[in-house]
Amino acid sequence: MNSKRPVFLPDFIMSPSVDKVGVEERVARFQTRSIKNESKRQGLRMALNMIDLTTLEGKDTPGKVRQMCYKAAHLHDQLPGLPTVAAVCVYPSMVRLAKSELKNSGIKVASVSTAFPSGQAPSEVKIMDTKFAVEEGADEIDMVISRGKFLAGEYSFVFDEIASIKEVCGKARLKVILETGELATLDNVRKASDLAIHAGADFIKTSTGKIQPAATMQVTYTMLMAIRDHFDKTGKMVGMKPAGGISTSKLALHNLVMVKEVLGEAWLTNEWFRFGASSLANDVLMQILKTETGVYQSPEYFSID
């Protein structure tokens, strides 16, 4: 085993248990905040700037990725002054292409890896997968944890795997996908969050987007609490990325309210908070245009990707 490993490690079995009823009540309260027009306007632009525009399908082609990269930089040219999205998220084989399409745009390229979405592959394969993505130029790596091992209680295995991927990442920031839809309980979500944070995650991310339920507010809240506890203890910030199922502006704004109230304003930038979504961007654009023009919009007037 690596001798450079941190000496102190908490016992993950001792992660605090989560009061599900309490979480639900707290989350419900975030959804009742009255957001006035001016704040809404800012919030929508902020949400837009936090989106990881994503395409992770077997049918992805270079053309599709090129198209999405264009969309990332030109969200809606009719309305000047819009921010761009934070990043595009693609499979490793598309990283080089995305990187060259996005050069000089300031938009990052994130790549999923470690046998996404199931994570059912030998560790060597996962490391090679990640190495490949990093060498192709990925700025961020979205890895999945081995949920099967986690549920079987093999926490050390999961921990070591995350740590070894982190090592391969180099300068690339590592997002660790817990796939909360498969973890069954909020207690497990909390445990997996603690584990990922200690193993070196720069971001923790809810889901792959392939499993339902995905980023429910309850799950996101639980993960935000893990980040806050870690910050309180160590002073180190960890980012958060809810992914999957956030397709409306309203839900995005609720999430921002939650981040602000749980973690504080420092997290309200795309360096520390992201939305993994493909259809959210257009809904936010429609809402922004609604606030600018006062007229309800139609999806027909917005590019699909």
Partner: peptide, 8 residues
């Protein structure tokens, strides 16, 4: 107004 302006 909403009926007649709504883009959809």
């Amino acid at each position: 107004e909403t009926f007649a302006t709504h883009m959809d």
